[in-house]
Design a protein around this nucleic acid. Sequence first.
DNA 1: CTGAAAGCGCTAACAA
DNA 2: TTGTTAGCGCTTTCAG
Lengths: 365, 365
Amino acid sequence: MIVLANDSRNCYDVFANDGKQKFLVDFEQAMVTIKEVAQRAGVSIRTVSRVLNDNPHVATATREQVLSVIKELDFRPSAAARYMRTGHSQLIGFLTDELAQNAFSYDLIIGAQQAAWEHEKLLFLLNTGNDVHVETRAINMMRDHQVEGIIYATMYHREIKHSQFPEDIPTVLVNCFADDRSLPSIVPDEISGGRLAVETLLEHGHRRIGFVNIAAREPAPLGRLEGYREALANYGIPYDEALVRFIEEPFEGLATSTYDCVLSLLQMSNPPTGIFCFNDLMVLGAYDAVRKANLRIPEDVAIVGFDNVEILTAQIHPPLTTMELPNFEMGQLAIRMLLGLENSIHNNQPIQHMLECPLIMRKSV
Amino acid sequence: MIVLANDSRNCYDVFANDGKQKFLVDFEQAMVTIKEVAQRAGVSIRTVSRVLNDNPHVATATREQVLSVIKELDFRPSAAARYMRTGHSQLIGFLTDELAQNAFSYDLIIGAQQAAWEHEKLLFLLNTGNDVHVETRAINMMRDHQVEGIIYATMYHREIKHSQFPEDIPTVLVNCFADDRSLPSIVPDEISGGRLAVETLLEHGHRRIGFVNIAAREPAPLGRLEGYREALANYGIPYDEALVRFIEEPFEGLATSTYDCVLSLLQMSNPPTGIFCFNDLMVLGAYDAVRKANLRIPEDVAIVGFDNVEILTAQIHPPLTTMELPNFEMGQLAIRMLLGLENSIHNNQPIQHMLECPLIMRKSV
DNA sequence: CTGAAAGCGCTAACAA
DNA sequence: TTGTTAGCGCTTTCAG
């Protein structure tokens, strides 16, 4: 239901309107052109163009004069017209398969946007909802607008088909990689992340460490498990199958499943004193299980999560020690690669950058 | 630290590269032009243009012929060139003050993007981080690219200064409103949201209802309090100051502060059996407090939150009954207003649309 | 039903 | 140091 401002139920005064109005339909933007500036300044448009492009061959007096007219008329050169001549659209397409509340990609967008901003580029955001048709059309729209490059970011770390991307537009993949490795990509280093998480527990004296993973053949669960094994190996601790649990799909009630898992871990005859959860969401269930078992965090059981979903990790009690996904950095790096400021090719092959996941130390270990 | 793909620590094979390579720097896009299409099809560019624009005055045979060449050459008309003639850039600027993980604006972006998509518009995303200089430059960049309209969305419901927006570009505010009411805006209906939340508790038989609010003179806390009072009034229950608590700034440890608040509410001689929390984040603390007091949810104490942060609400135990912000709808409506599909003006005054917050019924009431 | 030509706002050879 | 002019890729008036 839509309620107008002049509805009476309103705690803050929405009535007051001292005059100004805006009509949105058929707004005619009275564009000021370079020609008008030139006329007004009494010079040719070429001179104005030179001033706009910081061409040194302009007399200081002329430049000042032009500049003042530009300011006076509030003139801004048309990016479209500019593009037509230069071929530089200053536009970058940012495609995502899915943006969802329970994902952690804000920082990715912000990182990309910030880096783009620094280079005067604008970011087109397009969410495809994982629909191939939408994706195709999206890429076409990007092409229509002559984007200088495309960033394709996925919600979770996975492999994607290369075929859907055009050959003639530079593309960087984020949080995913092409099936045929034909595109440069940036992904988090799941292995070192998992290792670091578990080593944190080991460093705090824990020797029996449980791992609640998800049962999926994807880089994240696979990589973090690999890291778990490496960490144990580094400390000379044998891998104990009984301590590693896999939650099966579907993952809707993830916290609840984790609750069961952790409870059963804690009820073992030789229970773990440290638990590594595949992600922060699961930690909610883990906390409940530890409480249920009448144990304390971190005194009796230490817990490490993954993802650093701040709204959870910083607010639960005790605040969670967890691994952070390098989302901001991935977004930034993607733009830098697109702009040629960072290598995308090595030995004639597209590079896959793997960024480390920093440890966020709080109170659960 | 950046690790290349050919680093040895990698669980999933990143080596395989069967040939294709992409070089990102100095990519030269071999644009196909309308001229080439015309030549190839043996017609004039005017005819191709007609086909592109679905002009009926083209012989069927000619049209088919042109269409096939277009497909063959994979031709796409340049949006920039098109704009130069038509004045329609098909671009919409989406400005945000802050995009943060702990905000709930994904759906806002998605809603706007989806609506834009339906009308073949592209969305520029620009996050200003609340920096006025960035904002000014951002708006200028938008102007350079001739956006047809600007959506300005804030992270939380608040008043903003109108002055920073240009007069000549249609602008719609989302989750905020101009100090002088000179711009159309869309905001959630905080009052009816608060009322509905409390009425839900009342309907379930609760008569002593606590409200943990935040101490801020902003539409959300003010409006929800108003709604709380209205709901009580509707049920003929007197307002009891002792049941309403305000958490002071800073709001970092919001869950912890709420824990204290709720605990003290539950320790009253005549404690509430229902508690309305200003937002979902606070509910984490509320749940802890109820557990601490050895009470059950919802049997002993029912709880309602606000915002529907799915990652929390759906996963905590028991799943939270809460109010949802109409973010998706706000995003959609903003685009529709910009495109003139929805009224922005009423009696010569910009409209403020207030959208209701739907109740998400789960298990905490 | 089709085509020639002008021009959108800008930049870049080339000339002065 | 400055101006003239062509032309980027498209749409559109005006003729045919």
